[in-house]
């Protein structure tokens, strides 16, 4: 057994334990997030991947303290730099949000205020969290815009959101997120609304911020490709639970949960046109009155009787990987079998 020195440095930057988010509905309480464990270490890029309704965005909002009624955190602990965030007063939480931890949203057009120039909106963030003079703030804004790869920062700072392209707007949101030197940035589908070549630019920018500025990144995405590209570790969510946790490599080469494996088979890039794609029949369940069973059982090609009679255990494999499945150890599930689209020919 390895001896780990007791120091603050070994604590993860962000630690989420047994998080549950409840949304009251007429039919009962919906468990949108149910027992999620998650950590982000300093300087790490961690992904949360899942389909619509898996609970990935609500997990991010819960961490940021941005859940709005009727959604509430009904159980669990969120620790940031060792501090229990739910124990903080709202005011203190607000000071932390936008400075120590910040968020980049999916749709930059709705995340920006349409009636103010973008420079003004960045200024407001800096003003809220620092005592810089207006002149220093002005300099900081131009520096930030330059840092996120915007040519002609003076001109862009004076522009309104509608005058900028989608890629530029996303750069502005990233500039706002890093304006006050956060140690954690949560990016919720940061490139989903963007074209492929612009997406590649933004992903490169995020990679650079982590590498050069020591920011940790929690990336929420529906896209396995993006997650594979950027993340060291990945959590796969399904129906409010983390069903698998693995390194990006393990996820693609040796998935341990049937859901992960099934999703990989659905990807068009995994087949050539002669073979039909794998599908996952049925739909993601809404969990209102949780029963002791595997939530993926009715769509799983490997389900057995016990899968609908008991809750599956979390089985671990090595240091990182675990899967919420009875059969995780015995099954050899197919990973991503495809060769890359660009096999060798590209420089």
């Amino acid at each position: 057994m390895r001896l780990i020195p007791i120091s603050a440095a070994t604590d993860p930057l962000l630690e989420v334990r047994d998080l549950q988010v409840r949304i009251p509905t007429r039919r009962g309480d919906l468990l949108a997030v149910d027992g999620v464990d998650l950590t982000v270490g300093a300087g790490e890029i961690v992904g949360v991947v899942g389909e619509s309704g898996s609970g990935k965005t609500l997990t991010a909002y819960a961490i940021m303290g941005l859940l709005s009624a009727p959604a509430v955190i009904s159980r669990g602990v969120i620790r940031f730099r060792g501090q229990d965030l739910q124990a903080l007063a709202a005011e203190e939480r607000g000071r932390m949000r936008g400075s120590a931890m910040s968020m980049v949203f999916q749709e930059p057009l709705t995340a920006l205020n349409p009636v103010f120039p973008v420079g003004t909106q960045i200024r407001d963030v800096i003003r809220r969290h620092t005592n810089l003079s207006d002149r220093s703030i002005r300099g900081r804004i131009l520096e930030l815009l330059d840092h996120v790869g915007i040519a002609g920062p003076e001109r862009v700072a004076a522009a309104y959101p509608f005058e900028l392209s989608g890629g530029m707007r996303q750069r502005i949101l990233i500039a706002m997120a890093i304006a006050c030197g956060p140690s954690l940035v949560i990016a919720d589908e940061p490139t989903t609304a963007l074209d492929t070549t612009i997406q590649a630019q933004i992903l490169e920018l995020l990679r650079r911020l982590v590498r050069d500025d020591g920011i940790s990144l929690l990336l929420i995405s529906h896209d396995f490709g993006i997650v594979a590209d950027l993340c060291q570790r990945v959590y796969v969510m399904y129906a409010g639970q983390v069903v698998e946790h693995a390194t990006a490599g393990q996820l693609f080469d040796r998935p341990r949960h049937p859901y992960t494996s099934a999703l990989l088979g659905c990807m068009p890039a995994a087949r050539d046109g002669d073979a039909p794609l794998d599908t996952i029949e049925g739909t993601v369940p809404t969990v209102i009155d949780p029963k002791a069973l595997c939530r993926f059982a009715d769509r799983c090609g490997y389900a057995q009787a016990r899968c609908t009679e008991q809750s599956p255990p979390r089985q671990t494999f090595g240091v990182v990987q675990d899967a919420l499945c009875f059969r995780a150890a015995e099954l050899t599930l197919p990973g991503l079998v495809t060769p890359s689209l660009t096999d060798g020919v590209l420089p």
Binding site: L203, E204, I226, L230, L336, T338, L341
Partner: peptide
């Protein structure tokens, strides 16, 4: 080459 992940080029070979 801009397609992310294993479907496109590796990040270091990407044409930006």
């Amino acid at each position: 080459s801009a397609v992310p992940g294993r479907f496109g080029a590796r990040a270091e070979r990407r044409i930006l």
